[in-house]
């Protein structure tokens, strides 16, 4: 039974996995960054499919917007070129890659089997209003702590990236 939701899920999942594979296969970091942006936008679509509008919006604004722009800035600033091809050992190429793929398929298969009995989520939607009241009542202290964390990270980044000879 192929409901429209499942069709949308399959399309978005294919885009996500294709983006992630492209992140691995691309040699230039800017191409990898663009692949990662594709993954994040498709993930935002998956969040929307699950009725998590706030998380989807934050995903687009913070992840695909702010964080990836930071990545692209640094790639351009450092003028990062293509990865050099180094000769990987034969063992890594002919044993490591298939083993990695087998491991990936195995984990996905067993997680799928172990969670198949969960069924699908109940149809009622949770609203952003409930989320905000939870965030600003029960989790208000962690929320304030994150602003402190951001401030410390900002100062740390500033101190780290400052040129020593400028003062």
């Amino acid at each position: 039974m192929m409901t429209p939701q499942i069709a949308v899920f399959l399309v978005l999942a294919a885009v996500t996995v294709a983006g992630a594979v492209s992140l691995i296969l691309q040699r230039h970091p800017i191409h990898s960054a663009l692949s990662l942006i594709v993954v994040m936008v498709a993930l935002a679509g998956l969040y929307l499919l699950q009725g998590a509008e706030f998380v989807a919006a934050v995903q687009i604004i913070v992840y695909a917007g702010a964080i990836m722009v930071l990545f692209v800035f640094v790639i351009m600033l450092l003028n990062a070129g293509e990865e050099e091809r180094t000769n990987v050992s034969r063992l890594a190429r002919y044993v490591g890659v298939p083993l990695g793929i087998v491991f990936l398929v195995e984990v996905a298969y067993w997680i799928g089997r172990a969670t198949a009995h969960l069924g699908s989520a109940p149809p009622e939607m949770v609203s952003t209003r409930d989320l905000s009241s939870l965030l600003f009542r029960e989790y208000v202290f962690p929320f304030e702590l994150t602003s402190f964390l951001i401030l410390i990270a900002l100062l740390g980044a500033l101190v780290l990236a400052r040129r020593e000879d400028s003062d």
């Binding site: 899920f9 998956l46 997680i111 969670t115 198949a116």
Partner: peptide
Amino acid sequence: MVPTSYFLVL
């Protein structure tokens, strides 16, 4: 709706 296990496998 989409089964939750699909999302977890992804």
